[in-house]
Amino acid sequence: MGFTDEDRVRARAIIDRYPHAKSAMLPLLLLAQDRDGWVTPEAMEEIAVWLGTTPALVLGTCSFYTMLKREPVGDLVVSVCTNIACLVNRGPELLDGLRSRYEGDTAIMVEEVECIAACDRAPAIQINYEYYGPVDTTAAVDIIEQYRSGALQARTISGSSRGAK
């Protein structure tokens, strides 16, 4: 799909907020991801032009951050924390449960993540960066399916509620 003209206007506004254009790198990559569901090569190339840098540096930066996906991941990213608070509160079990439930489902990506700062609700998950916890597999599946059916309105896969697809 690529950036729309509206995105480009927004991108310009984002760049203009900063004393130096290159600071807009992450916001623009997130914007690109909001648009396409992942950071496409076309987006990286266009961002390089906007920021007066090279696609190599955009890719180098992009590949450093786990929220930026460089291939399509589906509509929902389910982040399951297994860091220590969740580890001792059945996080790994939850992860296994969700992984096997959604194996092969191209619309839903279940990923194991590091501490998401919700340890008081362990085991905690995020669904497109919306928090849930504590949950077990059944509860989590129930919520995910509500998103899938549209009963719940999902954020984008970079967590924005603004440009949701």
Partner: peptide
């Protein structure tokens, strides 16, 4: 300016944060 990160712990280190805020790794 509210600047959103993109997923990495090391951006919490103060100089890592500055690199990130400059649009770099």
């Amino acid at each position: 300016i509210v600047h959103q990160g993109a997923g990495c712990y090391i951006a919490g280190d103060e100089t890592g944060l500055l690199s990130s805020l400059e649009g770099e790794r």
